[in-house]
Design a protein around this nucleic acid. Sequence first.
DNA 1: GCTAATGAAGTTTTT
DNA 2: CTTCATTAGC
Length: 872
Amino acid sequence: MIRMTEPSKITSQNVPDHQPAAGGIAARARASVGPKYLSGLNPEQREAVETLDGPVLVLAGAGTGKTRVLTTRIAHILSQGRARPAEILSVTFTNKAAREMKHRLGQMLGHAVEGMPWLGTFHSIGGRILRVHAELAQLKSNFTVLDVDDQVRLLKQLLQADNIDDKRWPARMLAGLIDGWKNRGLMPSQVPSGEAAMFANGKGGKLYASYQERLKILNAADFGDLLLENIRIFREHPDILRQYQQRFKYILVDEYQDTNVAQYLWLRLLSQAPSATKAVVPGRVEDANYDAQLRVGQSRDESSALDSGSAPSAHPGMTEQAAIAAAPNAPTKNICCVGDDDQSIYGWRGAEVDNILRFDHDFPGAKVIRLERNYRSTGHILAAASHLIAHNEGRLGKTLRTEDQDGEKVTVTGSWDSEEEARGIGEEIEQIQRRGEKLNEIAILVRASYQMREFEDRFVTLGLPYRVIGGPRFYERAEIRDALAYLRVINSPADDLAFERIVNVPKRGLGDATVQMLHDHARKRRIPLFEAARAVVETDELKPKARGSLREVVAQFDRWRAQREVTAHTDLAQIVLDESGYTEMWQKDRSADAAGRLENLKELVRSMEEFENLQGFLEHISLVMDRDSGADEDAVSLMTLHSAKGLEFDNVFLPGWEEGLFPSQRTLDEQGRAGLEEERRLGHVGLTRARRRAMIYFATNRRIHGTWSTTIPSRFLDELPAANVEITESKGGSAWGGTGGYGASRFDDMEAFGSTYSTPGWQRAQANRNRGGGRTGGGGGGFEEQASSFSSSSSSGPDFGSFSSRRRGPLTIEGELVAKSTGTTSEFSLSDRVFHQKFGYGRVTKIDGNKLTIAFDKAGEKKVVDSFVQRA
DNA sequence: GCTAATGAAGTTTTT
DNA sequence: CTTCATTAGC
């Protein structure tokens, strides 16, 4: 299938892009007949696939077949013989996306794509390039990639060394600043002095510089370095840059709207046609471009001054930059960026929406193709999402269309409080389930993760299977990082951070004092901690107990290193975990998640098999390890709006649409209008996840950090088109807060609840609920449900009259508990010791059919379904 | 050096 | 109301 003959001749750098090469004509001829992979593409998609020459920006709205275009384009390039697999650079943001592309490419081409070596994430590809040229960054090719945790610990040490109060100037904050600078492509010397001075009374810049120095000593790079050091090397060594420019005949970029400045610069460099002509001095020209772009990162106003060519030359090379901007840029190769400005939701993490908004400016002559045919959602959902996003000003503008039916309207439901919201959604889900739909097709998308708890509690009570997506990634978990630290120390005795992490895990009686001592020793002799430990055990500076422990640790590592030569790396890992007592530590642990941690450790050892040796494993672990893909059992998905990007479900619940929560007050305060627009994009992302039903909720009262507060409906609700939205009533009206600061809301008209149960709206809502067949089983009426929970209430509730102040308390909702009951007597008896996956150990205090009330040791009293617990 | 008790703080997070 | 991190005490 893939023609790999005459590959590179056609698009060698000597052939200008606008000259259709022989392959191009052949391609067109063939395309008119239509290779199999092109069939089924709509005209825009097809254009995006077939426009191979020059820069292309594909604006792919939600659900318009973005991934399909990317993969088909690669297949097209390959089958046209335009390039070999190894000559295509294809970058994504996530490993998941990269894997998905590989997978679909394999399907499309009918066989596994052996060798698309340059398909991967920005970071994995950057890391790969950096390993080749590590010495140019004062690193060895086996450098360690530090994660955020290591970074912070390292910075903490630096702060301590500098006698900076890390209460006032937290290491996390500095880590954030440095990360931000790296995202913007700034080396320590390039950080604007004003920003560098922001931290610790002017020491910020200096700390950044010494942090970088420490990294080199530890033979380590952080995530930012993987790209930043690439850029530095490309700038300082044009010959190396040219080598890569020549290698990559085609560049494809996924999710372009999420690129930050560093990623932009990196792409920019690689995408320039190799400068065969000596007229252009690469280093110089590119410097100018960087400076310009870096200024964009600093200040939008300055950059616009730059565009007009009248900028004062605060930076060297500015004048040249102005000239270059006016003239056609350095010839650009075949770069194809796919993205959607309306789905840019990572601005707070350094993503520059401007990158996509300015694409045709940055890549002159770029062809912009819009994909606006949506194949995912129904008409009403699409209309609602489009109408909402149309309120944004800073966008390129797309109009999503569908040929699907209108479907059901988007619903907006107000609840009294967040607890009721969770209950309402739980009931709705049960209804959907009864209709025979899969739980896998249901998602709840929240703005902030603390919203999840309420749903989890509810689902546990209902016995409804759910899965939380997101959260700590696999390699970020403590047990994985500990295990990796052991392996890192074996692999690289100079890895002080890893050594420090595990020297007292499991507990060996080597506390802060001992570690501090080792540090002093190490610094004095300029040796790694591990070697310091080896030396110190020969002296009598330590108490006998600590000395013995430390001696044992050193001996163990020596032994493991020796074994490494003769033992398979997976076996070695197992041996290390066992002999160090690490496995045992978790086996003894009786907390709820110990079993899961042991399982994760097994998974880690299993995953090592994919790599040839320990070295190879460690090189890739931090870059390509993904969260464990949860079991594929049928369950509701619970996640943040951010982690929902790229996913789709038949039924999507969107709770918490209230001012302050969504849009988030903090974003509004910190980012102003830009922040509001990003929040709105988040709403757009949320809505467009839904294929058939989108259900929005807002509550009048929400508990945040333990205290209740009254909220007002989100302004985004008012921005939804009335024609596509249906306002449904929930028990208890809403809109207590009245009008917000931005005008009247139509949700203000919903009946206020007041302080009794007898308002007309409430009664009507109850009637609707019962009539609507919302429940099975007896006794499940909303009123009784409410009543029972009132009577069992206890603690201090929200301070809103007698109703609300008494309605909190344990979740004892008899109606539903009976409804779910199987009738059979539970196999548990009173005061049984039981174990629950989420809540840990507890004692049964009450039994009601298959519903147990359990007093958990740590989590307090909960009602759970008996199938969720096992005998302890 | 370890444990228990106090106190501060508390979005979103692809690598 | 939580969770974490640091701080007293044992």
